[in-house]
Design a protein around this nucleic acid. Structure first.
Lengths: 162, 162
DNA sequence: ACGAACCGTTGAGAATGTCAATTATTTAGG
DNA sequence: CCTAAATAATTGACATTCTCAACGGTTCGT
């Protein structure tokens, strides 16, 4: 409403001046949109920081789970990362060729593989994690530690609804 | 640490039972990951709901901005939605063929087009918006209204850092 | 023992992302 | 005023990612 009035300047103003006109649009109030845009920016920053380690957010995530001794199945990886199982195959292939992870037969189910990190994988992850951490702190420098915690809690609710 | 101890059960336990073992991994504490996963789930839900209107999150966003009389330039759309300008071309082509939006020469800059919605576009947007709203409320049913507001505020900070 | 369900893998085709080149127009500087 | 650099939209090429269906091997329920 206010924006409309402001736009009603003299005679068809060239442009309502606003550099953030779009930020006042209804779309900007849409949580899905904010989520998408925040994710896009964050992902770009993360990928840029991980590039020096030859990783992207995806491969970093897989490596992180492998290095964490949680011994995830490829199926679990796919569900957790919201990827098609076939993408997990390609992702692991890439990391395995670089000797950062290994597929091990799951002793409990011979259909399944379990993913473990090699020593080199763990070493790389430790280094990459610092880069990732730096990015995250950079992005969150604008919010208070309390808000940081709140955000994590709320995102966890959205990310794991069940 | 704790996980390690727990895993050290009698004789190589088949599996630490946990169905959410992965949720205790270090990755699950990563804000980028939570953002990515929350976005993936939200996007999937939004696309599913918008499908009945022949829209996806992307085209819905473009339509929303067009219907909002904010008269965005294609360049502005690209920046706002974090897309390559060439993708905006394709997106608008699709909507324009369905007579939902129109490109209008920007009176202030003849290089630029400004996007406006047709009456049909506005009508469709109104309907689609209800679906989008329903999805959003569904996703946020688990949080309090106050948390809903907090989340929006924090995401806006991440989505528009400057 | 049997069929159904499940795991990883492969391959194909659609959708998206990324980038460079082109034309038309605007802007900045001499 | 004129010119060079920058900008907006578009096109096309190419890489990456998404989505599905099919397959062999294995497990599960009955």
């Amino acid at each position: 409403m206010l924006a409309t009035i402001v736009a009603m300047s003299p005679v068809e103003r060239t442009r309502p001046t606003g550099r953030d006109r779009l930020r006042d649009s209804v779309l900007a109030g849409d949580l899905s949109f904010l989520l998408a845009r925040a994710n896009a920016l964050t992902l770009a920053a993360a990928n840029a920081a991980l590039a020096e380690h030859g990783l992207k957010a995806r491969s970093y995530s897989v490596l992180a789970l492998a290095a964490d001794d949680v011994r995830p199945t490829q199926r679990e990886l796919a569900e957790f990362l919201r990827l098609d199982p076939s993408q997990v195959v390609a992702l692991i292939d890439g990391l395995e060729k670089r000797h950062l992870v290994e597929r091990r037969a799951d002793p409990a189910d011979r259909r399944a593989n379990v993913l473990v990190a090699t020593d080199a994988g763990r070493a790389l992850f430790t280094r990459a994690q610092e880069s990732a951490r730096a990015v995250e702190l950079g992005l969150l420098a604008i919010v208070t530690p309390q808000d940081h915690e709140r955000l994590a809690r709320l995102l966890r609710l959205l990310a794991f609804p069940d």
